[in-house]
Design a protein around this nucleic acid. Structure first.
Length: 506
RNA sequence: GGCGCUAUCGUCUAGGGGUUAGGACGUGAGAUUCUCAAUCUUAAAACCCGGGUUCGAUUCCCGGUAGCGCUACCA
């Protein structure tokens, strides 16, 4: 086992697309482990697949990781003692190691073409044999190899897999063993000269003195090949920790068709980074005792341990993420929520691009009022509809609402008329509102629902909603502000609603 | 097909040879409120199956089943 004393771990994504939530969790566990142990967290870009790698993805990847709250001690942007941190900058190193392996006869040139190999593979499959490489070119004599090379025949480089079972240790799963009979001699350098992932990853990890390889369990079957590379090169084999897959509700690997899967998508939905981090940490890991759910970052670092990571796959549960996000929305410092919330309202065209002091003060109150009602901040603009959208005709479309005004002795309508009569067309102060309500209560002898529901429906279109003591001042203050969507005053709302009722009766 | 990994409430999980199998999300009920949300209380809800070991297995071992992964000159 590799033991350099000090922990060194890495997250090594390929810049081939949006950062997937499963990879983010891998990054997080690496980071938590490093921070917990006082080790080093390294970011490395794996871009040997030139076809699919793009610079813009790399830029976004770094931004996404930072947004989540992760930082790295070594990486392509910050440097470090074992550069380069981008594989594409390191080709000559890989070639040098490959040459060494050839020379030591631990690897050999393979002249088989892709078509030949595919044919052999299919053949093996139909004969129900193991579809592993026959080892044909392993037996080629040196002279022939030399001749064909000289003739310019393209050749890949294959590693010789040893004649014994390959074992490695996995912190999450314990000892793992693969029979050498199921492991082909893997290609380590393509005939184009471009090295293969399973090979470069080992060289990079070894060069960077990685002590613990923490990654997704889709790499488990690759690990024996990699261990063979370590052994051929005489390099110390690190500890492994293979993390289980994150599944969608249908128990299939979480993918785009399950909805949001990239970290930026969650950010756009108004999920707080702390909440996402907390949720991801809990997906596949639990603290001792397992009876606590809320873990701010510092606590997470304190409690985290790789030994407690669960080996079984986990289904991503949006409901629980929502719940956690709500907890973090409630416990976050108000300015944080104000700023984020304002962003969403502005984006929806409900606030001006650069609000003045009055407007932003009012917007903050609006956000305070609505935030407890949302799972994700992106829901804010829709919730703000109770303030910005006032359409009496539409309110009366609802059967539930219509019924309240259609029935009985027109009590609900009388309540509104009485309210209208007493409501000043200038600003309605909260104390004044209370007085009015009390007056109507005695004069018409209505109380409770019969009193409150008609008024709330007239104001916001639903008999349920926020407390009047908070709602009324907000509406009134908003109605005096210069906003992209003008807020109607209480007085206007009641008047227009009464008009709509009259019209409806014809 | 082969190989590998996995298996506790619907979901995330704690636990572990003898437990009323614990917590959380979600769900139901109740309290509170004019109402909704929030909050509080409360209820229902789980050890995949079959063998073995054992006085006793959900726990340890073996097998089965199921799910997932790998089986590339992708990463």
């Amino acid at each position: 086992m590799a033991d350099h004393g000090k922990v060194r771990v890495r997250f090594a994504p390929s810049p081939t697309g949006q950062l997937h939530i499963g990879n983010v969790r891998t990054a997080l566990y690496n980071w938590l482990f490093a921070r917990k142990t006082g080790g080093t967290f390294i970011l490395r870009i794996e871009d040997t697949d030139v076809e699919r790698s793009e610079g813009r993805y790399e830029t976004q990847l770094l931004a996404d990781l930072k947004w989540l709250g992760l930082d790295w001690d070594e990486g392509p942007d910050v440097g470090g003692p074992y550069p380069p941190y981008r594989q594409s900058d390191k080709m000559d190193v890989y070639r040098a190691y490959a040459a060494k392996l050839i020379q030591e006869q631990k690897a050999y040139y393979c002249f088989c073409t892709a078509e030949e190999l595919e044919r052999e593979r299919q053949q093996a499959l139909t004969e129900q044999r193991q579809p592993i490489y026959s080892g044909k070119c392993r037996k080629l004599d040196a002279g022939e190899v030399e001749r064909r090379r000289a003739a310019g025949e393209p050749a890949a480089i294959r590693l010789k897999i040893p004649e014994h079972p390959i074992r490695f240790h996995d912190i999450v799963r314990g000892p793992v063993e693969f029979s050498n009979e199921v492991v082909s001699d893997p290609i380590i350098v393509r005939s184009s000269g471009m090295p293969i992932y399973n090979y470069v990853v080992v060289i990079d990890d070894a060069d960077m003195k990685i002590t613990h390889v923490i990654r997704g369990d889709d790499h488990i079957s690759n690990t024996p090949k990699q261990v063979a590379v370590y052994e051929a090169l005489g390099l110390p084999v690190p500890e492994f920790a293979h993390l289980s897959t994150i599944l969608g509700p249908d128990r299939e690997r979480l993918s785009k068709r399950h909805g949001a899967t990239s970290i930026s998508h969650f950010r756009e939905m108004g999920v707080l980074p702390e909440a996402l981090m907390n949720y991801l940490a809990l997906l596949g890991w639990a603290p001792t005792g397992g009876d606590r759910e809320i873990f701010p970052t510092a606590e997470l670092i304190k409690e985290f341990s790789l030994e407690r990571v669960t080996p079984s796959p986990a289904i991503f549960d949006n409901e629980k993420l929502n719940w956690l996000n709500r907890q973090y929305i409630k416990s976050s410092a108000p300015p944080v929520i104000h700023e984020m919330g304002t962003g969403f309202l502005r984006q929806a065209g409900l606030l001006p691009a650069s609000p003045n002091g009055h407007v932003s003060g009012w917007a903050n109150k609006l956000i305070d009022l609505l935030a407890p009602y949302v799972d994700r901040l992106e829901q804010l603009p829709e919730r703000a509809g109770i303030i910005f959208k006032h359409d009496p005709a539409e309110f009366l479309q609802s059967a539930e609402n219509a019924e309240i005004f259609a029935n009985d002795d027109r009590k609900a309508i009388s309540v509104l008329w009485e309210f209208q009569k007493r409501c000043p067309d200038s600003e309605l102060a909260p104390e004044r509102f209370k007085t009015i309500m009390n007056e109507i209560k005695t004069d018409l002898s209505v109380k409770g629902k019969d009193l409150f529901h008609p008024i709330r429906i007239a104001l916001i279109g639903s008999h349920s909603g926020p407390d009047f003591d908070r709602l009324i001042p907000l509406i009134e203050e908003g109605s005096h502000l210069q906003l992209p969507v003008q807020v109607k005053s209480v007085h206007e709302r009641i008047r227009e609603f009464l008009t709509a009722i009259e019209q409806r009766r014809g």
